[in-house]
Amino acid sequence: MSDEINSSSPNNSKLYAGLAIGLIAVVLVAARQFNQTENGSETTPTNQVMETGQQAAEGDRALEMVTLASYQDGVYDVIGEYMSPGGAEQIAVKVALQDGVITEASVETQAVRPNSVKFQNIFAENYQEQVIGKSIDQLKLDKVAGSSLTPKGFNDALEKIKAQAQTS
């Protein structure tokens, strides 16, 4: 996956990530309605995207944490429509849901206008899955590789500085 744009302008990549969340949320609403018409379910469609406070604060990180309480497991393949300055365009989004969590997502560009093709390609190339942490207790590991344990002197110094900042 290309990182060219991501690495040269982190702000843009955030924008794309945010766009990705937005789009996927929109598509899921569409998917839900589609799903509903199929099985005739009557559950209320509102309020299905729930985020915790912290995740909401870090909006563009929240993709993997978005829980969709009342969706069935499965792969949803949906065309999203939006209005570009030149007119209507489409983008295809595929998401896999398991236990109410998006486990996979991909996008496919379907634009016709040159500018829209360009932007959708940028989006598709920069849409990246984000990693999340898993508790070490849950895993059987031989070792953990990380940045070197912070030198003790460094930690002590930081504590001292914090204490000074509080008293002054």
């Binding site: 070490i136 895993l139 590991l141 070792k143 953990v144 590789a145 940045s147 070197s148």
Partner: peptide, 28 residues
């Protein structure tokens, strides 16, 4: 301190967790 060199017997792999720098109780 988390920088590793491993030389195991044939076929013995080391399963290494990649520490989450923001939360040391986690691996990514």
């Amino acid at each position: 301190g988390g920088d590793i060199f491993y030389q195991g017997q044939k076929g013995q792999k080391l399963k290494v967790g990649l520490e989450n720098p923001a939360n040391l109780e986690q691996v990514l």
